[in-house]
């Protein structure tokens, strides 16, 4: 059974003339699975992450669909009902989460706050767990008594990740956890996450605009464009052969050291304005494979060889060729 099941989730901004930032997203995350969510700025990936953890705040609103986490329908629960499950069922590390630390509290006080509010653990147990999570992210134990401003950006980010593990959550959502950091620090944090995978039981939703980073860590990847999932595929398949033209374009935009710079291309154009969505496929205006049908009919997310893709052209191509595409 899946740990998280998102079913037809819709999130809007504004009441009178709502903009659909998330337009009917469905996917699952299984126990101890690492899933990546990739897309450009404004595609709705952070909004989706917020909504899954029910952290959306006005003007954002869930306008349809369900989020079922560990058998409970989070979309049907009140804030009071959700409260005992926060940090335990799901914990979230936000983009620039390191700035979410309270500047006038020591790290210890902030850790304690989470544990006192959400558990009935004894004082020694609380202290023990605080030390454990710091060890997990390889930070000296003595930083517990420091204030955030005494730590570097990379250390703060690791403190925030450590904090997310405090109550042994089943699902951790990381939204661009390394974007503001140097390459080397990013590498250390990524290695650290892989290492934690062997020690703690948790599922991960890793949100980023950097497909390269996501592919490194994820088992399965969701590609999001203009509020919808356009491809869902296993990471090893994507490395060989991204199905959707958008996925392929993202792959081409990754600067891989030592590769030919001429093969390195950005995407032309910009994502569509969500207030004026084009008829048909949202990616059509930027797509190299576009046909007349693409401008008229919105494609569905279809199953193809165990993956899912939302594209008229690629969908047909692969079906005609049968199970042949060069996967693996």
């Amino acid at each position: 059974m899946s740990l998280l099941s998102v079913e037809g989730l819709k999130v809007t901004y504004g009441l009178r003339n709502p903009v659909y930032a998330v337009r009917g997203v469905s996917f699952e995350i299984f126990e101890e699975e690492f899933v990546g969510l990739v897309g450009e700025s404004g595609c709705g990936k952070s909004t989706l992450g917020f909504a899954i953890a029910r952290l959306e705040r006005p003007p954002a609103r869930i306008a349809g669909g369900r989020v079922v986490l560990d058998g409970r329908d989070w979309t049907a629960m009140s804030e009071r009902e959700l409260r005992p499950h926060r940090w335990k069922d799901v914990s979230v590390v936000l983009q620039s989460g390191m700035n979410a630390l309270n500047p006038v509290m020591t790290i210890e006080a902030q850790f304690r706050d989470v544990m006192v509010q959400h558990t009935d653990w004894s004082e020694p147990a609380i202290r023990q767990r605080a030390l454990e999570v710091l060890d997990m992210v390889h930070i000296d134990r003595d930083i517990l008594f420091r204030y955030p401003h005494e730590l570097s950006g990379g250390m703060k980010q690791r403190v925030v990740i450590a904090m997310a593990f405090l109550l042994h959550p089943k699902l951790i959502i990381l939204d661009e956890p390394t974007t503001a950091l140097d390459m080397v620090v990013q590498r250390e944090i990524m290695d650290n996450l892989m290492e934690l995978r062997g020690r703690e039981k948790f599922s991960l939703l890793f949100i980023s605009h950097d497909l390269g980073l996501v592919l490194e860590i994820s088992d399965r990847v969701l590609i999001m464009y203009a509020g919808q999932i356009v491809e869902e595929n296993r990471a090893e398949n994507l490395l060989e052969y991204g199905l959707h033209p958008y996925t392929q374009a993202l792959m081409r935009s990754l600067p891989v050291p030592g590769s030919d710079a001429r093969e390195f291309h950005g995407l032309r154009g910009s994502p569509p304005n969500l207030r004026q969505m084009p008829k048909g496929c949202a990616f059509a205006p930027r797509c190299d494979l576009v046909t007349a049908e693409c401008h008229e009919v919105e494609p569905d997310l279809e199953d193809i060889n165990g993956a899912k893709v939302r594209c008229h052209v690629v969908g047909k191509e692969v079906r005609v060729r049968g199970s042949e595409p060069s996967i693996g």
Binding site: Q186, R187, L211, G212, E216, L254, V256
Partner: peptide, 12 residues
């Protein structure tokens, strides 16, 4: 610095 660059082709 070079080893730190995300390189999905050399993953895991």
């Amino acid at each position: 610095l070079l080893e730190s660059i995300p390189n999905p082709r050399a993953r895991r």
